[in-house]
């Protein structure tokens, strides 16, 4: 979009209220990321010791979800220029011209403040402050600073995606603990192999956009080493809730097996370095990584619900 076109659109938007539909604003909140955040935050909330009134629990999850949506909107506002050149993101509301960057910024800020204040007032202020920090971490530390400046962007930025179960936990207890930190650590260690498997697959896209993803900067070989290294750490971290005693034997066995499969697939990515077999191995690891994380948290939740019913 040229500068003149953009100016026309903004001027017009001031009178018409913009061209975005409700669906476009929902897309701005990255609903798929939100669904993962809702799920992991809910698991954190359920696993936390003590109890919380179901209504307060639901409010906490709602606020965390809206906070995640706010982060998504702020991310799309700042990253509109790179979204425009990547095939995966070209159809997002800002690059496609449905929402102006100014509207996205206002929307993101309103949701950020709204979700933090509501969580603070209705649940507890520790959880509210934690949510505020998470939004700041994702929008400022990751999006504005790290994403465009270091190939380790998603390692540190991944922390923002790993905080929700801790916020869910803090909504019940008003604090953080080693147990909730382990939930954070599982997602934190999972993020690099998950994204780098995708980055190896979509290398060209990030190159066009000038985003320093690891395969473009450090090379594919180095990326494969790091995927393997993180997978070696991830596999035992996944079993930690069982070792620490807040997950049962079923979780212990399943998480060990899932970790083993993760490791085998990461090894496959490390071994196959050329052509279609390499691409297939990356895609396989990427797809399995989504299942892996979902399965671990679903098992934690399932066990918790079963123990709750039996108690």
């Amino acid at each position: 979009m040229s500068l003149a076109e953009r100016h026309d659109m903004m001027e017009n938007a001031a009178w018409t209220g913009g061209d975005g539909s409700v669906g476009d604003y929902i897309a701005l909140m990255k609903p798929r990321v939100m669904s993962l955040v809702i799920f992991t935050a809910f698991v954190g909330l359920m696993l936390a010791p003590g109890s919380v009134h179901p209504v307060i629990g639901a409010v906490a999850i709602l606020c965390i979800a809206i906070g995640a949506g706010a982060s998504g909107a702020l991310n799309m506002w700042y990253d509109a220029d790179i979204d425009e050149v990547m095939s995966r993101t070209r159809k997002r509301p800002i690059p496609s011209g449905k929402i102006t960057p100014e509207e996205a910024l206002a929307f993101g800020m309103t949701l950020s403040i709204g979700s933090v204040v509501t969580l603070g007032l209705l649940v507890n202020w520790f959880a509210g402050a934690f949510l505020a920090f998470t939004i700041f971490f994702y929008a400022v530390i990751y999006t504005m600073w790290l994403k465009r400046s270091t190939p380790q962007n998603i390692v540190i930025g991944g922390a923002a995606g790993a905080f929700p179960p801790m916020i869910g936990w803090a909504s019940v207890t008003g604090t953080v603990s080693l147990e909730s930190f382990v939930l954070f650590l599982i997602i934190f260690m999972w993020t690099p192999p998950h994204f780098w498997a995708l980055a190896l697959f979509k290398k060209g896209d990030y190159e066009t956009a000038g985003v320093p993803m690891l395969p473009n900067v450090a090379g594919e070989m180095n990326t494969r080493h790091q995927i393997l290294a993180y997978s070696i750490i991830l596999a035992p971290v996944g079993v930690a809730p069982y070792i620490m005693g807040y997950a049962g034997l079923a979780y212990g066995i399943a998480s060990a097996l899932l970790g083993l499969v993760f490791l085998v697939l990461a090894l496959d990515v490390w071994r196959k370095r050329e052509g279609t077999p390499a691409q297939k191995a990356c895609l396989k690891l990427f797809k399995f990584s989504i299942f892996y994380l979902f399965a671990l948290f679903a098992l934690l939740l399932g066990e918790n619900l079963v123990t709750g019913v039996m108690a």
Binding site: T16, G17, G18, G20, V22, H53, V55, V59, T118
Partner: peptide, 27 residues
């Protein structure tokens, strides 16, 4: 059409917030 749907969505959110604060107050 889009403006109307946006206005309705904002109204829905505002009513939802009022109901939410009311229920949480009772709780």
């Amino acid at each position: 059409k889009k403006r109307r749907s946006r206005s309705l969505a904002i109204a829905g959110v505002l009513i939802g917030l009022v109901v939410l604060f009311y229920i949480v107050t009772i709780v």
